[in-house]
């Protein structure tokens, strides 16, 4: 069973704005029947102000497709068309307190239905430039088409390249076999042979012998490492806060979208590596919730 948030369940069990809008003057049909998703968005737009007076949806799809459609209509009602076009699929997912990675395409479909409906209202033709392939990386929801195109356009030759360019394979690493297969296929197009990087003798990350630091110096270094990582987290609407350092244990608090994100564990690993690099000694990064109660300075 999927892990659907309470909000997704609520919007599925009692969808808002289900059905076609009477006197609609904008229609957006998107989806792919093969994939089991299809959405018709109907809007009633005020011709004077371009304000969306009413929105309704008809969806053939799973629980999250119906919830995403319901959320979309709630978000855009009362907005002008231009304001509504600024709604991203992430906004739809956020409104629902997140979607499982396999289900993010449901929110993409919502945004596309909106674009299609606006184009329909304005007498333009909306063309979908988005092709979806099989989901390869479940950690970061990356599909095969995106990986293939990125390999082709950037002449990538290693799994590591693919991780760096697409994030695919950067989490649990279970999809590396799939990524290697795509590399083999795409590289063959240009007559190349994929050669899995022989496990190069790893320059063992033996931290340079630590020069004795004061507690304050250590904490500053840790703060510096967190600062360096922060932009990446903020890009995904999240953040991290240093709570305490106790010997070799660094307690941090994940905030914003990072809090409760399924990827939190992977993110923590990344943070830990960064801090180890900066400090030159091994430390363990642990969520602040796991801090022994007696040592908590708060609640």
């Amino acid at each position: 069973m999927w892990e659907y948030s309470e909000k997704v369940q609520e919007h599925f069990f009692t969808p808002r704005n289900a059905g076609a809008v009477q006197d609609a003057n904008a229609l957006g049909d998107v989806g792919s029947l093969a994939c089991g998703d299809a959405l018709r968005l109907s809007l009633k737009v005020d011709p004077e102000t371009e304000v969306i007076l009413d929105a309704g949806f008809q969806t053939f799809g799973c629980g999250s497709a119906i919830a995403s459609s319901s959320a979309l209509t709630e978000i855009i009602k009362g907005k002008t068309l231009d304001e509504a076009l600024k709604v991203t699929n992430q906004d739809i997912a956020d409104y629902l307190d997140g979607l499982p990675p396999e289900k993010m395409h449901c929110s993409v479909m919502g945004r596309e239905a909106l674009q299609a409906a606006v184009a329909n209202y304005r007498g333009e033709e909306w063309k979908d430039d988005h092709e979806e392939g099989a989901l390869i990386c479940k950690c970061f929801a990356v599909d095969s088409v995106l990986i293939e195109e990125t390999i082709r356009n950037n002449k990538l030759t290693t799994v590591e390249d693919v991780v760096n360019f697409t994030k695919a394979g950067g989490g649990c690493s279970a999809c590396h076999e799939g990524v290697e297969e795509i590399l083999t296929r795409v590289m063959a197009e240009s007559g190349q042979t994929f050669a899995p990087a022989a496990p190069a003798p790893v320059a063992v990350a033996m931290p340079t012998p630590p020069t004795k630091m004061t507690g304050v110096q250590r904490i500053r270094k840790i703060e510096a490492a967190l600062e360096a990582i922060r932009p990446n987290l903020q890009r995904d609407h999240g953040d991290v806060e240093l709570i305490d350092v106790d010997g070799k244990t660094v307690y941090v608090k994940m905030t914003g979208a990072c809090a409760g994100c399924q990827m939190a564990a992977v993110t923590l690993e990344g943070i830990q590596e960064r801090i180890i690099d900066e400090l030159g000694e091994f430390v363990r990064v642990v969520p602040a919730e796991l801090m022994p109660k007696s040592e908590r300075a708060y609640g």
């Binding site: 969808p15 289900a18 059905g19 299809a38 008809q58 969806t59």
Partner: peptide, 24 residues
Amino acid sequence: KLSPYWGENGPVEEPEKAFAPAYA
């Protein structure tokens, strides 16, 4: 009731044509 392929009391006529989404 939520489905774009379903009308008032039955499937819309020629469902494949009545609802042909932009990508397939």
